[in-house]
Nucleic acid binder design. Sequence first.
DNA 1: AATATATATAGATATATTTGTATTTTCACC
DNA 2: GGTGAAAATACAAATATATCTATATATATT
Lengths: 99, 99
Amino acid sequence: MAKFNIDIAKLELAASKLRAISHPMRIAIIELLSGDKHLSVTEIYKALEIEQATASHHLNILKSKGVLISKRDGKKIFYALRSNTLTEIIDCINRCNDN
Amino acid sequence: MAKFNIDIAKLELAASKLRAISHPMRIAIIELLSGDKHLSVTEIYKALEIEQATASHHLNILKSKGVLISKRDGKKIFYALRSNTLTEIIDCINRCNDN
DNA sequence: AATATATATAGATATATTTGTATTTTCACC
DNA sequence: GGTGAAAATACAAATATATCTATATATATT
């Protein structure tokens, strides 16, 4: 028995969630959606000036990790933040720029 | 001018900090050091059952991103959390397991 | 200075992530 | 059913990360 009990599964889970938001483009998406905005994939990839497929890929990562939710309306699919605590975490990290 | 002003440098900075803690082993290190503990590299790599070089590598990443501080005492170098807000962030992420 | 211990670094390999291009699916409308 | 728009998926290439083994550096002790 180690002095420190390692729960690999728990660590992987926490890491995978953090990894989901550890990317400049995905942080940009989160910031873009902050303020309870609901935007379509087209609006998002045009605002961020990236390929449609790239946007779709990042949106999928964020959704699969529970950061975003999506709702179809006709041909469009609107993405939004599932909770704004995420925005707060990003803000917090940004504020810690004192190193 | 885009509707959304993108500050790449700021996004990269935030992402790089998040990436620093987005790894199971590095989260384990943070948890191991939480509670204001000061541990040597040897204590850390033995507790986590990883190679010395691997531990050194992760410790360096965490230190260079301002997560950890280190202080030499004789032959040993002790690492500690620079601030425990990091632990709080990890806790918060862990608590959000409701997806 | 020689030796032992603690940590860091280098280099190679393996693995994961990101991105672009092309294709496919889903839906609305005619 | 055919067509066009919106989004997702597949695949390949480029890039980044992680890990191992080996080696180097720093410090203390004799």
